[in-house]
């Protein structure tokens, strides 16, 4: 069991082609220990979403395998939760119902437990006053928070988050980053997180994987925790080491291709 902690999620010689388009070229290898917060950073269209979808079971690797806890990942299940790039709350459900939908297919929770969890995550994403509102009545950023809360409420061990904070304003973004980091470390969640925002990457990540442009190749694998520790808070944001790290990473990224 102990070894599974170290190689909890494994990309083993993974490739992916869509018809003639090679998105991921062999060999893509990555070993993610349990409870690690991994951020994917790379130019648009390099294949980050595709990698996440393969972990989630929505796409299949062309060759190679992705293993979770030692066995190849199959179709989607409750162990892997996904927050999609475009916000996808259901228009026929209220905000609270949307969040509760995350637990709809869980048989291990009582209706009461589901209701209180839904409330909890509603509050967490700052939508307490909008529980009864329908998605058509709230802003895009709020809808994205609904989708985030829905996935968190589902309680899966692995979180696959594809540019989840893209539509949020700076302040809300900062708050959710801190919350996400807290939930992740408290509940030992393993997170794959895609972003274009270097600052966000450094603040959140235990480890940053920097990608080349398509076909995706890892051009850097940065151990952020080694330098910043695992405690992330607002003071860190203003610290000197944070700025230095940010400059380093920006240089790496710029040396490959245009980003941002």
């Amino acid at each position: 069991m102990n070894e599974r902690l170290q190689d909890y999620l494994v990309f083993d010689q993974v490739t992916k082609r869509f018809g003639g388009l090679t998105v991921v070229e062999a060999p893509f290898n990555l070993v993610v220990p349990r409870g690690q917060f991994v951020v994917f950073l790379g130019p648009s269209g390099c294949g980050k979403t595709t990698l996440m979808r393969m972990v989630g079971g929505l796409d299949e690797a062309t060759t190679g395998t992705i293993r979770l806890e030692g066995s190849p990942v199959g179709p989607p299940d409750e162990r892997r939760g996904m927050v999609f790039q475009s916000y996808s709350s259901f228009p026929w459900l209220t905000v609270l119902q949307n969040i509760a939908f995350g637990m709809r297919y869980r048989r291990d929770l009582s209706p009461k437990a589901k209701a209180s969890r839904a409330r909890h995550y509603l509050d967490l994403v700052g939508l307490s006053d909008f529980g009864d509102a329908y998605p058509s009545r709230i802003s895009g950023g709020m809808r994205q928070r609904v989708a985030i809360a829905r996935t968190l409420a589902a309680g899966s061990d692995v979180l696959l988050m594809d540019e989840p904070f893209g539509a949020l304003d700076a302040q809300r973004r900062e708050q959710l980053q801190i919350e996400l980091r807290r939930i992740q470390s408290e509940e030992m969640k393993t997170v794959l997180f895609v972003t274009h925002d270097v600052e966000e990457a450094i603040f959140l990540a235990d480890r940053i994987i920097v990608f080349s442009s398509r076909p995706a190749r890892i051009i850097d694998d940065i151990d952020v925790t080694a330098e910043l520790g695992s405690d992330r808070n607002l003071e860190l944001r203003d610290s000197e080491v944070f700025f230095r790290r940010r400059a380093d990473i920006l240089r790496t990224v710029r040396s490959t291709l245009t980003l941002v």
């Binding site: 989630g56 989607p76 409750e78 996904m82 999609f84 259901f90 297919y105 829905r150």
Partner: peptide
Amino acid sequence: EVARTLGAR
């Protein structure tokens, strides 16, 4: 896809 990742059959 959202429903599938939440375990819907």
